[in-house]
Nucleic acid binder design. Structure first.
Lengths: 144, 144
DNA sequence: AAATCTAATGCAACTAAGTTGCGATAAGAT
DNA sequence: ATCTTATCGCAACTTAGTTGCATTAGATTT
């Protein structure tokens, strides 16, 4: 619990009368350490490894709370489960290796903004997008 | 059952010894008529309306079969359910209205190909992508 | 340090989407 | 008409997530 952006989150929570529970802090830490979006199931596993053993209900409720507080964002990679990452990160997309699951961040580019502009001209008001690339990362290309 | 691309599908199925059941044909028709990706649940509803009342297991198995035969493609809009559309359509993306659910097709553009090329240079071999835009369609903008 | 307030938790039971095994049915070739 | 086997229906199961309710525990107040 040392990183700078934690401070802002903690202050906001305290100001609104929310509590700094072990699980709440641990989820933020794990999402930060993972450096990739985690599913609820993965989070439950990581928390268990730490000795915290929250009930899955609590984890799902904590996720819902953090979404509401805009501490995290919900993503979908077309799996049946949702994934979550810290909202403090700059807006970006992902390149997901279909073999090892490695996830690389990709900046949101000019090309995507162009498409949205084009949609705007067609009178569709874009408020969000879901953009993920799938394929083979460098190391999985070599080993196959 | 009049459209041209149906013929190719039917021929391919017969050639491989698969059968042209009512449900199989009806699913293709409904996906064609809908002009937008349908979920398994929606398909079951539409089939029921037609008087066919296949068990959900059969519908899921038919979907799995059609995916294997590459008659349909699986898509995800970040819902908990999958959606399916006819593979005969040209590769494209979607603009989904968050209010009325209206789905508009969008051609896959140069901007996206540029991103993939950039990833290629970074040694990530792209084999697919998931690209959907969310927002408000023309008529829902007016009524709000 | 104890009392207090209520945010957060645990549990059981439930839902929705999809899957599996298996015996019964029916498409369509002979 | 018969036969082969693709397809179907049912029951039971799985996975991801949700809800109601009684209990516990942060953090503030006394």
């Amino acid at each position: 619990m040392k990183r700078s952006f934690y401070d802002g989150i903690i202050r906001d929570l305290k100001d609104q009368g929310f509590r700094l529970t072990k699980v709440r802090m641990a989820i933020i830490e794990e999402l930060d350490r993972a450096k990739k979006p985690l599913s609820a199931g993965e989070l439950i596993g990581l928390l268990k490894k730490r000795g915290l053993g929250p009930h899955k209900t609590s984890v799902y409720r904590e996720i819902a709370f953090m979404l509401e507080q805009e501490i995290i964002n919900r993503l979908s990679f077309g799996e049946r489960q949702d994934r979550f990452e810290l909202a403090a990160l700059e807006h970006h997309h992902h390149a997901i290796c279909k073999v090892c699951g490695e996830i690389e961040d990709i900046a949101c580019s000019e090309g995507i903004r162009q498409i949205e502009e084009m949609l705007g001209k067609q009178k569709f008001k874009v408020s969000g997008h879901l953009i993920e690339f799938f394929g083979l990362c460098t190391s999985c290309q070599q080993s196959s």
